[in-house]
Design a protein around this nucleic acid. Structure first.
Lengths: 258, 258
DNA sequence: CGTTACCTTGATATCGTTCAAGTACCGTGG
DNA sequence: CCACGGTACTTGAACGATATCAAGGTAACG
């Protein structure tokens, strides 16, 4: 399984090398490992290379809220370097391969130049957009649309990193995870999946998700998908100008796996 | 009204000057101005100097979700530089004084060195923490606790910038804003305020909020307030080391208004 | 002095929760 | 090969928190 961090802007050779060096020391962790624990001072950040994880908060009485799902290529706890006690936990949902890196390395990345720094900013902003969308779901959408939106979003995110088939993918989430992500009870999450199946929109069998009617699902939730794409924003356009790729040997074009 | 951007790490003279230059060209905008419109390619970012604004998404049928409140000292649409069509709108709630700046200036800031870049990262991460907390509210808290949490958070944020009294502050939010922020109907938001008043916890009269029992409110929502503080995180400790303040003339200490 | 924006209150409806029971599917040990 | 226990899921029934509908009240403002 190869990691596509082409989420970043097109990188020159030097930038690629720097990132590569971060990813070299990776380790394998089992299901259920707490990479970050909320409330504790966390020293490390992670790049998820393979497997799934999730970010979540737990209240004292046991209620839980899943904030986001962390997929291969995503960075977990980048904020660990700037926000002292971690505001949320990060736990693996499957066995994972993760690259661990220290604050000093993040700052090295930033110090290397504005292009990588802006990339980190972009990743963080993307995370924020995910949270915003989820907030719209919890605040203003009925259960069926919340579930629809979650899985349409997952579908697109997984496709981006080559982990989803044409209409199918594996999502190692229990009903409880879905419920905790969407502010529902497990019971109602179950009923909602039944409803989606009966409406011929989406089928969930164990961890297998099959999208039956993507257009219908996207229409339900007004899915623009814009916040997923790596559009050419003003900032990026600017980056290609004044600063430009640091090495003239690299042609600015869609980046490949590396 | 003076702006406290001491949210940033302690800055040296050069860094302060750079920020100052950004804030110099500010303009006054009336209530209800859309600084950013969702779906449109936005070219500008803003530092809010005085007044209130809010970030929000609107669905086609008119349902709205308020994502966050923007207070003096906050940056709005910093992500405009990296995420192309704006994922959410930003609209003023009062007359505001805002400093407008272009993507090029953000990148200048980043390029100036890792300390300012990390500060931007910190502000973005803080935003993300706000969204996460709100998500917990919408997903797992009953109406009364949602309202409690929102106003405790606002209280602390306002205190941080000197805009809240000991137990009182002005919040130019209508019931509709509160309802849209918390995923409630206007009617129920009204009833919930009544309940809070009857329980001697909080009183809202027009735009005036009076906190009657802060400890009780904070206990209800397990308010740690950690994500508000500017704790000395690993990354920050690091910044004081290798890089240090760029100018040796500035003593590293708590920053003042400037 | 009427219009509009904002808020309140009551009555009824609904979506989602909780409680409870039961099924299916493991992996384990006898 | 079967009994066992655990986890994940499903389904039904009753309940409850919040929504919706409807009406009325107050204050600002032209």
């Amino acid at each position: 399984m190869f990691r596509k961090l082409d989420l970043f802007i097109d990188m020159d050779a030097q930038e690629r090398a720097l990132l590569r060096s971060l990813l070299e020391q990776s380790r394998e962790v089992p299901t259920g490992t707490a990479l970050v624990k909320e409330g504790e001072g966390n020293e490390w950040s992670y790049v998820l290379i393979t497997g799934w994880a999730h970010r979540h908060r737990t209240l004292t009485d046991g209620r839980r809220q899943l904030l986001n799902v962390v997929l291969p290529g995503d960075i977990a706890a980048l904020d660990a370097h700037v926000i002292s006690p971690a505001p949320a936990s990060v736990t693996t949902l499957t066995a994972c391969r993760v690259a661990v890196f220290a604050p000093s390395q993040t700052l090295q990345l930033i110090a290397h130049g504005p292009r990588l720094a802006a990339s980190l900013l972009w990743m963080t902003a993307r995370e924020e957009a995910f949270l915003g969308e989820r907030l719209v779901s919890l605040g203003r959408r009925p259960a069926i649309d919340r579930v629809a939106h979650l899985f349409v979003e997952l579908y697109h995110r997984l496709r981006l990193v080559g982990l989803a088939g044409n209409d199918e993918f594996v999502a190692p989430l229990t009903l409880e995870h879905v419920a905790d992500a969407l502010g529902l009870s497990v019971v109602h999450a179950s009923r909602t999946f039944s409803r989606l199946r009966d409406m011929n929109l989406l089928v969930r069998r164990n961890a297998q998700i099959r999208i039956l009617d993507l257009p219908a699902l996207e229409a339900r939730v007004e899915f623009p998908g814009l916040y997923l794409r790596r559009g050419l924003s003003p900032g990026e356009r600017y980056l290609r100008g004044p600063f430009g790729p640091a090495s003239p040997t690299s042609t600015p074009q869609a980046s490949e796996d590396f």
